[in-house]
């Protein structure tokens, strides 16, 4: 599903470099990515989602060579194939929960918003315990509720790849467990590949494999 070889990346302003000689993640595999801050975990997610482009090397995702695609194609690929869950939720404050969930369908024509999607959104909200919160704004929600809305947004298009950047970083232990279980269940049910960046070593049991960016040999030089 995801195959990286001879990847090198550095930000234009310098100071940080990432090098991954070889890395492969299989279809439906659930992978936890750990490592010290600044080791390039978030950059790694950005590279496999096409948000960032490597300086050299290859990033193949679902058989597509991302580094060879143009910006518009990468955006289309991302919205159709990748569900991204951000650490800070990144919900839009002026949209109600329902509209935040449906937002990807309104910002790119690759996804089509139809009654079936709306019905699926309602069911997903029900499953996530958000059915009563659909008409609330994000600032009327708790941290755990916000994270569940962000997960719903990521899961609604049924992505083949789920990328989560410390999705439990801001949550209490009870909510952390619930979120991990939700994502794990979805990944299992949809046979989705799940790459989860985390600092929380307590949840590593939920994953098939753990990639330690420090041990793996990625180099991050500040």
């Amino acid at each position: 599903m995801i195959h990286i070889s001879n990847l090198r990346f550095n930000y234009p302003n310098g100071g940080f470099r990432l090098a991954i000689p070889e890395l492969a993640i299989d279809d439906g595999e659930r992978v936890a990515v750990i490592g010290p801050s600044g080791s390039g975990k978030t950059t790694f997610l950005n590279l496999i989602s096409g948000i960032a482009v490597p300086s050299c090397g290859s990033v193949r995702v679902g058989g597509m060579e991302l580094s060879a695609m143009g910006d518009a194609a990468r955006r289309d690929f991302r919205i159709a194939n990748i569900g991204f869950i951000f650490q800070d939720f990144e919900l839009l404050e002026y949209l109600k929960v329902r509209d935040n969930m449906l937002h990807p369908y309104r910002i790119n024509r690759t996804l089509r918003l139809d009654p079936d999607v709306r019905a699926r959104a309602a069911r997903l909200a029900e499953d996530m315990g958000l059915a009563d919160l659909l008409d609330r704004y994000p600032n009327q929600l708790s941290q755990g509720e916000k994270q569940r809305v962000a997960i719903c947004r990521a899961l609604l298009p049924r992505p083949e790849i789920l990328l989560a950047d410390e999705p439990t970083g801001n949550l209490d232990p009870l909510s952390k467990g619930r979120i991990i279980n939700l994502l794990s269940e979805h990944a299992r049910r949809c046979n989705a590949t799940w790459v989860n960046v985390t600092h929380d070593h307590g949840c590593l049991d939920a994953f098939d494999r753990v990639i330690d960016f420090a041990q793996f040999g990625s180099r991050a030089v500040a």
Partner: peptide, 10 residues
């Protein structure tokens, strides 16, 4: 930036 990360077209 969030919309870009989600895949919003330019």
């Amino acid at each position: 930036q969030t919309m870009f990360k989600l895949g919003c077209s330019r």
